[in-house]
């Protein structure tokens, strides 16, 4: 560890470079775990993009009924599933689907939710009431019911799963940001900005939003995992990815019945989900520490 060395260098560097980006990078690269997580996420993205060209077997159409449920081997790194397919190839192809589902749905939910939360926390009054009523209504509809409704009305498939997951991310982000905004707007620096005649827009975007960003980033990273698991639960209810789509959650769910006789079928997708969520969480923590201006090393 060169933890003793780094501060000195950084302190020197800080004299010259003051752009926000380099400031962020300066703090971020000090966090080894977060860096590893970032590399892992980057790798995942590469795998997701390149999957069709690097898989050893066709993820959906290759099968071998003589090797049903076979454990991992040299021919099949992660073993064979209950329909004779190569789990390694399916996991690689699944990275595409699971990542897209997790990321897009949360991104959509976070953007809408954050905007609503900012407005409602800052203006309170009628805006607040209307936004919070909408949140109440959205919350009140149990997720599965909402998802079934969306799929029933729009038709099945992954795209609608993403829509459903995005919709029930909205109120959570909204409430979270609203709570933070309520607390922030009474802090001295915001009061100061207001008394200096800054417009609402400036205050919201320049002063309040950065103050809420750490909570949003942390929740964003948590939410990606939740979304991947939610997508899995939907597959479980017949509302998500249709077989034989190698969505990780669907794979885990399908392995449920074979869990006691062929545990590798469940362990592999569970590990894939676990590691992905872990990486996003660690990355989120790293980003948070680097983004938050209030945090200095202790």
């Amino acid at each position: 560890m060169n933890a003793t060395l780094a501060p000195a260098i950084d302190a020197a560097a800080a004299e010259h470079v003051r752009t926000p980006w380099s400031e962020f990078w300066r703090k971020f690269r000090r966090q080894k775990v977060a860096l590893v997580a970032a590399v892992f996420v980057a790798l995942l993205v590469v795998v997701a993009v390149a999957a069709p060209w690097i898989v050893p077997y066709d993820a959906e159409n290759y099968f071998d009924y003589d090797a049903l449920n076979a454990p991992p081997s040299l021919a099949h790194f992660f073993g064979v599933d209950s329909l004779g397919r190569d789990i390694f190839s399916r996991i690689l192809m699944g990275a595409r689907i699971s990542l897209a589902a997790g990321f897009i749905s949360v991104a959509v939910g976070a953007v809408i939710g954050t905007l609503l939360g900012l407005l409602s926390g800052y203006y309170e009054g009628w805006t607040d009431r209307i936004v919070m009523r909408i949140c109440d209504v959205l919350f009140a509809f149990p997720g599965i019911l909402l998802a079934i409704g969306i799929v029933a009305i729009l038709g099945g498939g992954m795209a609608n799963v993403i829509a459903a997951v995005a919709i029930f991310s909205v109120p959570t982000f909204a409430r979270l940001v609203r709570g933070n905004t309520l607390a922030l707007k009474h802090l001295t620096y915001i009061e100061a900005a207001r008394s200096l005649g800054a417009s609402d827009r400036t205050i919201l975007l320049r002063h309040v939003l950065p103050g809420t960003i750490s909570a949003v980033v942390v929740y964003f990273s948590l939410r990606i995992g939740t979304s991947i698991i939610t997508a899995a639960s939907l597959s479980f209810l017949g509302m998500g990815a249709q077989p034989p789509t190698p969505e990780w959650g669907a794979m885990l769910d399908a392995a449920r019945s074979d869990m006691l006789t062929a545990p590798h079928e469940a362990i592999v997708p569970a590990l894939a989900i676990f590691l992905t969520v872990l990486a996003f969480n660690l990355l989120g923590d790293g980003l948070r520490d680097a983004l938050d201006p209030k945090i200095e090393r202790r």
Binding site: G84, P243, R256, S257
Partner: peptide, 17 residues
Amino acid sequence: NYSTAQKVAQFLQQQLQ
């Protein structure tokens, strides 16, 4: 949509392919 039916459907898909 239970698990045995999922297996049957995918098996049929493989065979027809």
